[in-house]
């Protein structure tokens, strides 16, 4: 029986692993986890992964149809389809990143048998996958809409990308915090779905701050994602909309959520029962 040769993930005996090498190992591990996640979710011999695009497409079509039936197709001077699309794709990113991360350590406890695989790798794989998924979904639906003149490219790509960037940061932070908290206390998993529904009105998905009465604006802007949405819509519609956001505030809150999450990952291992 021929024995396979074996360069493997571990360093040579007695050698310290270098930073570059450990970074490479992270890419290998997270990449393998992402491929595995795609397999388990969508199987390997079908086009099930297209549902990443199908879901937002159906949602945007549905809401646009409903909205156009009961309201004028321009609300506050903004076309409805693109408003729904720029709202739903980032919200989907948040919701999927969080729900996929909740209890993901318990679900994948058997993988933690392999010591080169840490809790952050499991989270990184999910967050990257959901980020890529929602961006691809957004692009495909946007292209499809633009064929029917229901979507035009953003006026200010810089601001548009910046808004997406903060939305990704916010979603990643929330996913890490929820994932760790769900391992520490049972009730966290139960409230995840409810939180997802609550996000619909408070996230900034369905309104612009400028439409609110001045007193409500202050409260709306406590929510980091509202700032991200303002940037996305500001980038999308340019000077035809008035936007309100505070770069310092959104940077600070997103970073804070991320840091809290990372601190939690350091102690979460104690709560995970590995068979």
């Amino acid at each position: 029986m021929a024995h396979p040769a074996n360069p493997s993930a571990d360093p040579a005996p007695g050698k310290e692993i270098s930073f570059i090498e450990s970074l490479r190992l992270r890419f290998v591990v997270v990449g393998a986890l992402m491929l595995r996640e795609l397999h388990t979710r969508y199987g390997r011999e079908n086009i099930g992964f297209l549902w990443i695009i199908g879901e937002p497409l159906l949602f945007c079509l549905g809401v646009t149809a409903f909205w156009s039936a009961v309201r004028p197709s321009y609300e506050h001077g903004i076309p409805v389809p693109s408003f729904v699309l720029t709202g739903y794709a980032p919200l989907m990113l948040w919701r999927h990143a969080v729900t996929r991360s909740v209890l993901c350590f318990t679900a994948n406890a058997s993988l933690l048998y392999h010591k080169q695989l840490g809790v952050l790798d499991l989270l990184a794989a999910r967050i990257v996958l959901e980020t890529v998924g929602s961006i691809v979904a957004f692009v495909v639906v946007a292209l499809l809409f633009s064929v029917f003149d229901a979507y035009t490219p953003p006026k200010d790509f810089g601001l548009f990308y910046l808004g997406w960037f903060y939305m990704i940061l916010f979603s990643a932070g929330c996913a890490i915090v929820f994932a760790c908290a769900s391992e520490m206390a049972d009730w966290v998993e139960k409230i995840t779905t409810v939180t997802g529904y609550l996000m619909i009105p408070v996230s900034g998905f369905a309104f612009m701050v400028d439409w609110l009465p001045p007193r409500a604006r202050v409260y709306a802007l406590y929510m980091p994602s509202v700032h991200a949405y303002e940037m996305i819509r500001g980038g999308q519609y340019g000077s035809s909309v008035v936007i309100h956001y505070d770069l310092a505030y959104v940077s600070f809150t997103c970073a804070a959520i991320g840091v809290i999450g990372l601190i939690m990952t350091r102690s979460v291992r104690k709560y995970i029962q590995v068979e």
């Binding site: 360069p7 493997s8 993930a9 591990v29 393998a32 595995r36």
Partner: peptide, 19 residues
Amino acid sequence: QGSLSGIDNMRFVSRIYRT
């Protein structure tokens, strides 16, 4: 991973141990 086949598990292990 229980829901994956032996081969798919093997594929994953071969990736993370780089064999």
